[in-house]
Amino acid sequence: MKGEENKVSFDLSKLDLGELIKLYEKITGFLEFLSSSEIIQKEKKEEKNE
């Protein structure tokens, strides 16, 4: 998977306008998901510390 990601080129010109916005929303949506997942871990850490 690592090798595949490195090969990714940002050829956005082939996307239409709607797809471009959708792409941005997918990326930000996933970032929010990641951020909320990490927060759960931190809460667990805090609980353990208590």
Binding site: F10, Y24, I27, Q41
Partner: peptide, 26 residues
């Protein structure tokens, strides 16, 4: 948990990079 968080950090770094590039393009 440590490994899990490291994975999340790794993905976040990559996706923040994507976000930056896509935003500039937009």
């Amino acid at each position: 948990i440590k490994k899990y968080n490291e994975k999340i950090d790794l993905f976040s770094t990559k996706y923040n990079e994507y976000k930056k590039h896509v935003k500039t393009y937009l």
